[in-house]
């Protein structure tokens, strides 16, 4: 469980929204310009803090979806929860030019870098794709051919975040395989999976345990628990399975 120690002081910074784009009907990406941003690793997150005019504050964590790169730009991708306090503001109210307080990067365990190698198994549910996308974008930007498989569970094709970009990554990248499972609605003649991720699906998609894949699982708690458990039962080394759960309700 060795890793790089991150012992830098995390100060609040004021970021500016420079661009917004809808990924799905409920999910929006925010491109932020963060003066003084120290850089990040794929998989890390930031804490965002909103302040009302009476001083009331709400803080939540959001994964950095953009690849590590020089400069001050970051992308966050936010799913709007119906009665949520923060996500409807970020993915509904914010406009280009608005300012936002955040600090980070946070987390040093659920991270991947080219030097860490593979093969790589990425398993996502819903917005759990966000930190994994930073890894896929990094891999692409580096022209890496590290064998990589993504298994991504969504309710419907319409709700698949980054769908076009994933298609493009598969078409233009090397040694990347993306499998979708659509748990609620499938288009006609859908040839992919249409059930929750289970052991059989992981047997088909995951690397064999003796290939010692490095695995990142991210999504609602029940998905993360069951995927990690299935992988251990299939013989994968627990220490090579890294998990991140998006609370609070765990979907």
């Amino acid at each position: 469980m060795a890793g790089t120690a991150l012992q830098r002081r995390l100060t609040w910074r004021v970021a500016e929204v420079v661009d917004l784009g809808d990924e799905t009907p409920r999910v929006r990406s925010l491109v932020l310009s963060v003066p003084g941003w120290p850089g990040h690793l794929a998989g890390q997150h930031v804490d965002v803090r909103l302040t009302a005019d009476d001083g009331y504050q709400a803080e939540r964590s959001y994964s950095i979806a953009s690849a590590p790169a020089a400069g001050e730009r970051l992308t966050l991708t936010v799913e709007r929860l119906a009665d949520g306090e923060v996500s409807p503001y970020l993915a509904g109210e914010l406009r280009a030019g608005d300012k936002l307080e955040l600090r980070g990067p946070i987390g040093g365990y659920f991270v991947w870098d080219i030097a860490i190698g593979g093969p790589l198994l990425l398993v996502a549910g819903g917005s759990g794709i966000c930190p994994l996308m930073a890894m896929l974008r990094l891999r692409q930007a580096a022209g890496s051919d590290i064998p990589t498989r993504l298994l991504y569970s969504s309710r419907s094709l319409e709700e698949v975040i980054y769908r076009n970009e994933l298609d493009r990554l598969v078409a233009t990248g090397t040694a990347l395989d993306v499998r979708l499972t659509l748990t609620r609605d499938q288009p006609e003649r859908w040839a992919g999976y249409h059930r929750r991720i289970d052991t059989d699906m992981l047997t088909e998609v995951a690397w064999a345990p003796n290939e010692r894949p490095l695995t990142f699982v991210c999504g609602p708690t029940p998905l993360v628990e069951s995927v990690a458990e299935s992988l251990v039962n299939l013989g994968h080394e627990p220490t090579r399975i890294k998990t991140e759960r998006f609370g609070p309700t765990g979907g």
Binding site: T239, T243, P248
Partner: peptide
């Protein structure tokens, strides 16, 4: 926030009724 902030909730925290999970790997 029509009610005063609950003095038992530390700054930056909010109340939940369920029991979220945080861990870095599979459950042993």
């Amino acid at each position: 926030r029509d009610q005063p902030r609950d003095a038992r909730v530390p700054p930056g925290q909010y109340l939940v009724r369920d029991f979220p999970v945080l861990s870095a790997g599979p459950t042993p």
